[in-house]
């Protein structure tokens, strides 16, 4: 089984976080107060932010290693990511949003796989709807389908439920649970909601402002 090993210091102006943990299959929840550096850690794993120091290794792939100056491009890391505010392409249909993320040259096959994925997340009927008119819950489902479209090894979830109402939150939680189990991938879930921990965590990494303090089963 693939292991993700993170041991980095990530810095932005005025703030720095030291994160050290490993994650395997299942859902690892990064839990802690807002502003403790959870999302920064995720950005470093996604490759959108260069760590100041340290290493991020996923199986045989070195995502980042500052001692030898390695920084793999986001595009090459085979990740899926869901943001708090979906970050969808509002000018394209939900189907296009998912199909674009499928790493296949053939447009027809990509659309077929995207259709299957949207059906899997329960959006079969909204496939060609106007993306910007979808509800918050529907947008997050599209974002989840899109994140899985590239057949990622790691699924990064950055507060994906926090902008949803209670009902959509529950159904999104169980959707994430079953998709992660189905695919046997590593999922990292950033949250400051204790309910997410109870409902989803296979492993927990606890954050204090600026650092990880413990990783527990």
């Amino acid at each position: 089984m693939t292991t993700l090993a993170v041991d980095v210091r990530v810095a932005v102006p005025g703030f720095e976080v030291a994160a050290s943990f490993t994650a395997q299959g299942g859902i690892t929840v990064l839990s802690g107060p807002s502003g403790s550096g959870k999302s920064l850690t995720l950005a470093a794993i996604a490759g959108t932010l260069r760590p100041a120091r340290g290493t991020i290794v996923c199986g045989d792939n070195i995502f980042a290693d500052t001692t030898v100056g390695v920084h793999m491009r986001s595009q090459d890391r085979r990740l899926g990511m869901v943001y708090q505010h979906a970050a969808l392409l509002d000018h394209r249909s939900p189907l296009d949003n998912v199909a674009l993320a499928i790493r296949q040259a053939n447009v027809a096959t990509a659309k077929e796989s995207a259709t299957a994925l949207l059906e899997r997340v329960g959006l079969g009927r909204a496939m060609s709807a106007k993306t910007r008119l979808l509800s918050g819950g529907e947008r997050q489902r599209v974002a989840l389908a899109r994140a899985l479209a590239g057949e990622p090894r790691i699924l990064l979830l950055d507060e994906p439920f926090s902008s949803l109402d209670a009902t959509s939150r529950d159904s999104m939680r169980s959707l994430v649970r079953s998709l992660v189990d189905e695919r046997g991938i590593i999922a990292l879930l950033v949250t400051h909601d204790a309910q997410d921990v109870t409902a989803l965590a296979d492993h927990v990494v606890v954050y204090e402002p600026g650092r990880t303090v413990s990783a527990s089963e």
């Binding site: 996604a46 490759g47 959108t48 491009r73 986001s74 595009q75 890391r77 085979r78 990740l79 899926g80 990511m81 943001y83 970050a87 392409l89 674009l100 993320a101 790493r103 899109r146 994140a147 479209a149 590239g150 990064l156």
Partner: peptide, 8 residues
């Protein structure tokens, strides 16, 4: 960024 992460 989301588009880059998804491989574009």
């Amino acid at each position: 960024e989301a588009a880059r992460v998804m491989g574009l």
